[in-house]
Design a protein around this nucleic acid. Structure first.
Length: 410
RNA sequence: GUGGCUGUAGCUCAGUUGGUUAGAGCGCCAGGUUGUGGCCCUGGAGGCCGUGGGUUCAAGUCCCAUCAGCCACCCCA
């Protein structure tokens, strides 16, 4: 949880605007769903034994006795909305994105907050490998548009319900033989989620997983073909990626294609985005037998990576320094007229010395200052000062000043 | 949930073995220019020293608790 204000908010606006533009270019429509959902939704979709559900969700009973949770991720809510609104009845595929806050009760640290914001994209109703590739191409495109060159895309395929059980069993057998090397956590999850052992950072577990079976050896014909097609299209699109057989997702619902965008400079929380295919989830939530794929992307983490840009801090086009009550009233009126015309105009509402007003104009980075006192109002001519280094000033006519400025800026 | 570190002015921080009135830089306000910003000079405002309790003649300083933040584990975006 964190307040985002003045200079930093510009970065957020830039990121969100860029995301909306890029997602739009790929045919995605925005969707907003509630932050609060029935707890059961997350139990069914994310999986009851995941850490997120077991110990990280903000869950409470409301006055009617329903168990509600703040969403820990976006996919479940989007799919719920998709099913409840029968969006699937329209011709697909359906490409949806959402931007908003998620909540997980974890110990905060760099790049990890209890309320954090995600960009989230989902494609429903398309099984083909092309959407998998398209989604990653889009993510890659977004990262580049944000100016992030050093983000690595890592790709894997987790297989499907046909081929994963055999792999799972092979993993369990493999690690059973090396039980003494595994950490406590891995011993515990060896049978519930053996894939996770591959991802463990403990030295013993890393060593133990040397030579472990790889999922690719167990892919069924369909999964193998799907994965090859995805990689082929990624290559054709010029996306640089790394295949990593150890890439595993933390949520139960993922199958086949999974991917992650990894960035340096974020400390331990180096995943900027992560996602994958979740065949069967839609049906599980009461929809048709339809498959989907999506990813989530952490806004705070993006913000840590995106460089500041000068263009975000541009000040007003004009600052009116008015001296005295009447000139100030005049300026108040003129400012409105010019703002309606599209100019960025500012002034001070209090009676301050010209010096103080000049200082203010300089501080907020106004491009120019119009100095108006009683004499200027009388004569209809005032000084327009250019606030750039040299600071030259010209006498201008007050009549039609707004239009003249607009023409000049156009 | 576990471990480590940090909370003093708007911001970044200093504050000696516990000892008068808690400091600096930056920022802010005003003046140095009768109506002209940046640079410079002068002055000023601004502190429940995170919160609560304890030890002591005396606590920003020592002890306990608590809250918040950061970093790491874990987990994830």
């Amino acid at each position: 949880m964190k307040d985002v204000l003045a200079p930093e908010i510009h970065k957020w606006q830039f990121i969100e605007a860029t995301a909306r533009r890029v997602f739009g270019a790929f045919g995605f429509e925005e969707i907003k769903t509630p932050v609060l959902e029935k707890t059961e939704l997350f139990l069914r979709s994310i999986g009851e034994t995941t850490d997120i559900v077991e110990k990280e969700m903000y869950t409470f009973e409301d006055r009617g006795g329903d168990m509600l949770s703040l969403r820990p991720e976006a996919t479940a809510g989007v799919l719920r909305a998709y099913v409840e609104n029968k969006v699937y009845a329209q011709p697909g595929p359906h490409k949806l994105f959402t931007i908003g806050p998620m909540f997980r009760r974890e110990r905060p640290q760099k790049g990890r907050l209890r309320q954090f914001n995600q960009l989230n994209c989902e494609v429903l109703g398309d099984d083909g490998p092309m959407v998998d590739a398209e989604l990653m191409v889009m993510l890659d495109h977004l990262l580049k548009e944000l100016g992030l060159e050093n983000v690595e895309l890592v790709v894997n395929s987790l297989g499907c319900p046909q081929c994963r059980p055999a792999f799972r069993q092979a993993l369990i057998d493999f690690f059973e033989a090396k039980k003494d090397q595994l950490c406590e956590d891995c011993l515990r999850r060896l049978h519930s989620n053996p894939l996770r052992v591959l991802d463990c950072k403990a030295e013993g577990c890393k060593a133990a997983s040397q030579g472990a079976p790889e999922i690719s050896q167990y892919h069924c014909a369909d999964c193998a073909e799907h994965f090859e097609a995805v990689k082929g299209m990624l290559g054709a699109a010029g996306v640089v990626y790394k295949q990593d057989a150890r890439l595993v997702r933390g949520l139960d619902y993922y199958v086949r294609t999974t991917f992650e965008a990894i960035a340096g400079g974020l400390g331990a929380q180096n995943a900027v985005a992560g996602g994958g295919r979740y065949d069967g989830l839609v049906a599980q939530l009461g929809g048709p037998e339809e498959n989907g794929i999506g990813f989530g992307c952490g806004l705070e983490r993006l913000a840590l990576l995106v460089e500041d840009r000068d263009q975000w801090h541009e000040g007003p086009d004009l600052f009116i320094a008015a001296l005295g009550a009447e000139p100030r009233a005049w300026a108040f009126e003129q400012a409105q007229i010019m703002r309606r015309g599209g100019l960025k105009v500012d002034m001070m509402s209090q009676d301050k010395s010209l010096k103080a007003q000049m200082r203010r104009a300089n501080k907020i980075g106004s491009a120019r200052v119009l100095i108006v006192g009683g004499d200027e109002l009388q004569s209809g001519k005032a000084l327009l000062k250019d606030m750039a280094q040299d600071g030259g000033q010209d006498e201008v006519s007050l009549e039609g000043l707004g239009r003249a400025l607009l023409r000049k800026l156009a």
